[in-house]
């Protein structure tokens, strides 16, 4: 259930709420008490240098790690069944089963998530968009890394999610797939889906983001909306280096 503060004036709900998230790996504090929100119809970007804690944050949200703090997706704890039904996750390295074909991956996800029969059409569309239409019967172990990443993306999007987590999604993709993925980000936003992208490549999210969260050494060191940045007349690159390296 949402509280009033979680529903904004524009009626956009906070699809993802992260409160006081802390994650420690043995002696390393990977994520240090961070809090942020991503609303429906918003593209949030976790930006930061290598080792900033972006992937750990995304993995914690996806429920793959144990953590301290609170993570709510669509108003429910991230590890609850109801929240799992509504979010998709694209990992940093493609997650595919070697002995399943591309189409069998689609079928497996559709069945596991109990999707209705319309999934076939969605799957066809997604695979066509990523130039995988003619590779449906290929085993995933026979695909290149980039193609495997495309399968991972298709699996995450097939469930028609209300929120999608992308962890360095452009890695290994060809220019056409990158362009296609950027278009998909915008389409998801149009449909009211919340999108959270983790990346360390500033150029890769240029023109698509609504809210940027810059992470460094496990903390969020800067949070800006696109409008705030435009009003300040500073570039994202300049601010990024200023807050991560103290260089202006």
């Amino acid at each position: 259930m949402y509280t009033d503060t979680e529903i904004t004036t524009k009626g956009r709900i906070s699809m993802l709420i992260v409160k006081e998230l802390t994650k420690r790996y043995e002696n390393v504090l990977a994520v240090d008490n961070i809090s942020f929100e991503v609303k429906s119809g918003e593209i949030g970007v976790l930006l930061g240098p290598n080792g900033a804690g972006k992937s750990t944050t995304i993995k914690s949200i996806a429920g793959l790690l144990k953590f301290n703090g609170t993570i709510l997706i669509n108003g429910e704890p991230n590890k609850s069944l109801n929240s799992k039904k509504v979010f998709g996750y694209v990992p940093e390295t493609a997650a595919v089963y070697d002995y399943l074909t591309v189409w069998e991956h689609m079928e497996f996800i559709a069945r596991a998530y109990r999707l209705d029969e319309a999934w076939k059409e969605s799957a066809e569309n997604l695979l066509t968009r990523f130039d995988m239409g003619d590779k449906k019967q290929m085993l995933c172990k026979e695909l290149s890394k980039g193609m495997q990443q495309k399968v991972s993306i298709c699996c995450a999007l097939l469930i028609n999610p209300k929120m999608v987590l992308f962890d360095e999604p452009m890695m290994g993709l060809d220019p056409k797939a990158i362009k296609e993925l950027k278009d998909i980000f915008l389409e998801l936003r149009e449909k009211g889906c919340a999108v959270l992208i983790s990346t360390h490549i500033l150029d890769s999210i240029e023109g698509v983001w609504d809210r940027v969260l810059v992470m460094n050494k496990g903390k969020i060191v800067l949070s800006r909306t696109r409008k705030e940045l435009e009003n300040s007349s500073e570039s994202l690159e300049k601010i990024f280096f200023a807050v991560t390296e103290g260089v202006i």
């Binding site: 089963y97 399943l100 074909t101 069998e104 079928e107 497996f108 559709a110 069945r111 596991a112 019967q137």
Partner: peptide
């Protein structure tokens, strides 16, 4: 090649059978 015929968690079993 085999089609999945079950839903939910049972699909994991069917996937492994296929593998």
């Amino acid at each position: 090649r085999s089609k999945f015929s079950v839903n939910g968690a049972a699909a994991i079993f069917q996937k492994q059978m296929l593998e």
